[in-house]
Amino acid sequence: MPTPILICDDSAFARKQMIRALPKSWDVEVSQASNGEEALEIIRAGKAEVTFLDLTMPVMDGYETLSIIHSEDLPTMVIVVSGDIQPEAMQRVKKLGAMEFIRKPITSEKAKETLVTYGIVQEGEI
């Protein structure tokens, strides 16, 4: 069964880059959101086992989204993918329960490494 994942970024280009960076052989069902509000809806519907989340977004930014996921204990593993790479940004999202912080632009090597590190996919699978 494919793994339901969510890619949340206000930039369509960034979402495209993200999808391209995912391991080709990873069996996923991708949902997309362009802000935090849309993302929460998809997560609550159980369509996001893994969420790739941008920080700088209109309507609802990544920080707010993360804190809601955290406080409502929503069932998703969050990997922040951000252009904001300040040390403080990393600390903040980790504190808000993000599993990992990846700097943009994401590469397929980094995506694979992260997914394997956290046991989301097995090395042999891809």
Partner: peptide
């Protein structure tokens, strides 16, 4: 998006 990444590094 390109500037988003670039300005992030500058920041």
């Amino acid at each position: 998006e390109l500037v988003n990444v670039a300005m992030g590094r500058a920041a």
